[in-house]
Design a protein around this nucleic acid. Structure first.
Lengths: 207, 207, 207, 207
DNA sequence: AATGAATGAGAATTCATTCAT
DNA sequence: AATGAATGAATTCTCATTCAT
């Protein structure tokens, strides 16, 4: 009797992974609909069809899901960002690729979120500074720093620049999502041109 | 003998206003120290010296204070923004004045918040889109539109531009607050140059 | 200068009486709509347009209004009942007059209550044994006792009989109010005949 | 070996039922002792030894327990009433059996209530018209209607008659409970004779 | 006498977490 | 590993009553 054994693919393990994912997905929806303050474990678990106790087989607390979720977002976007870096051969190329990728990512996520949200229910627009964001920030800043070292970009305040770029991308991205049709290319073009145009005008670092 | 009579200035009205302000101030402190998730009505009311029930004479819930607080900041900044507009005679002048004013405002508020915060505690990074904030956005966008009409600026997507500028200002401003000494002039210079440099490169509107 | 001075009719006194009545009326409405458990002083005072503190110039507590209200009902019905007694020259005459009067009273009150009640809002049907009811009970029982002493009625258990008559009147009265048109005469006829027919069949007291 | 298997009889289900009953029983006691106005969820739950939150696993609010309680009484009496109907072979037989059964039921319940009540405390005189009570009313009225169809009783207003009988039974029953010794047979005799004697005198329906 | 904001005890209710099944 | 009822500390919120104006 032959038996194929894949890594972590017993029935048990499959269920475990599926449950973990089910909880994460439900949590994302709930956080989106209710905001982080009012979301409860029960709200989340109710959507999964699992029992409340089961939640604790996968996460130690609500906060842990929240962090896992943030990491989840990071885990999905950061490789993309990394790929942009590796695939590009110029500073502008990187910036354009990264912003375009981010806007596409937003549009995708947006649709995923929308699907389960009762129409008209718009929770107040809130943002939390997650670990995910922090790491994305660092990655972007480091990309800038490296570009500067290789003289691919003028030596400016990379910290401010990264903050400015990310903030801009987020906010322009939000506006983009409100328009129909959603045009990520046009939004990316806008953002890239604003940044690339502005950089040469920035004050140079004395060092 | 002349006597100045203010509108609604009986002793009762004064107390009411003072109490409302006391609650708002206490709430600002508590939110800063504890974060929004763990702040409770009791935490807030305890600081005011008022009775717990009194809270509900002024706000229907914690969320309502929170919104009022966010609105309050925007409401206090709007007149400043307006003054910048009226005092400036060029597009760049307006932009510079507005951003400088905003950074100064942030620095001031920041100190006010800091005063009671145990060191090392980062204030929570959360944002609500309140009506008053919406109006700030509109004011900025309209300033851009008017500049464009008078050929003081190229005709670009004012909505995206306003969003980008505000986002950038917020985020660069946050970074600025983390540095010592706090240098609002340098931060403003950075932001203004990035924006003013970038605008000419933006895609023009076909109209 | 002539000045007519009526008993208790200065402007002050008129207002006082009017306020007291306003509170009682509002209370009757509120008790009817909300039931006694959930009715609050604020509910009552809100309808009067008076300030909450004013309530305490007229009543020491919610319970006091409630009792006053019960007494109010008694104060209005008991004279009628008494008049029935005095006007009647036979036992049956008294019973018929009393029941007819009670049904008329119910119909009147009913309309008064209805006018202010939001349609469809039917609080669960509840009854409280008020002092009013107790006194009415005693009056009815005493009328029976007196009739028995004068051999106008057979000697039966007056306590049970009074209870039975009042209960029947209440319940048949309720049913009557649900029918259209409201026919107090028919209902009274029914009740009187049932009682008068039943009395001769009752077990006689051995005394 | 035969084994009786009850529906839903895991240990869990048993506990749930036991808890529900424990809460209802405690509620009955508390309502009796404190009256409905002052009874609180905590008063009830304290007696059960359960945790306060557990209350809400079974009932959404105090009112819901109250209704459940009222309904419960009617629900337990209905089968008895039904049995009276089936066991009787005359109209009077049914009426007598039903009233006797009701008075016995009251006496039993009464003792159950009394057991924990401090002497002198009168149980609050309140009545709610619950769905189950409504059904009791309908059952009685239908019994009357059927008797009339079979010429076992004169054709009178069955709606009024049922209302009158139930009201009388309730009130005479209450008086009965106040006397010592409690004599259900005498009370039933009184009620039955009053009703049976009165019926022939009632106005006939024209139909 | 009227006002209505303040009071604060105490009631209702929620919810993360545990644990017996 | 899943279940889901029980737990009870913590929180929100209500409301009769007081009292300075």
């Amino acid at each position: 009797m032959s038996q194929v054994v894949l890594l972590s693919s017993g029935k048990r393990e499959q269920t475990k992974l599926a449950n973990r994912r089910a909880i994460l997905d439900a949590a994302r929806e709930v956080f989106a609909e209710l905001g982080h303050e009012s979301a409860t474990v029960r709200d989340i678990i109710r959507r999964t069809g699992l029992a409340s106790g089961t939640f604790y087989n996968y996460f130690r607390s609500l906060d842990e899901v929240f962090e896992a979720l943030a990491d989840d977002g990071a885990a999905r976007f950061r490789p993309i960002l990394r790929a942009c870096w590796e695939a590009s051969n110029s500073f502008e190329g990187y910036l354009r690729a990264a912003i375009q990728a981010y806007f596409d990512f937003m549009a995708d996520e947006h649709e995923a979120w929308q699907s389960h949200r009762p129409a008209g229910e718009k929770h107040p627009h809130m943002r939390v500074q997650t670990p995910e964001m922090e790491r994305v920030f660092e990655e972007v800043r480091d990309a800038f720093l490296q570009a500067m070292e290789h003289d691919a970009a003028p030596r400016v305040d990379a910290d401010y620049l990264a903050a400015a770029c990310i903030a801009m991308a987020r906010e322009v991205g939000d506006k983009m999502l409100e328009r129909r049709p959603i045009d990520t290319a046009a939004a990316a073009d806008f953002a890239v041109k604003l940044i690339m145009g502005g950089i040469p005008a920035l004050p140079r670092l004395s060092t």
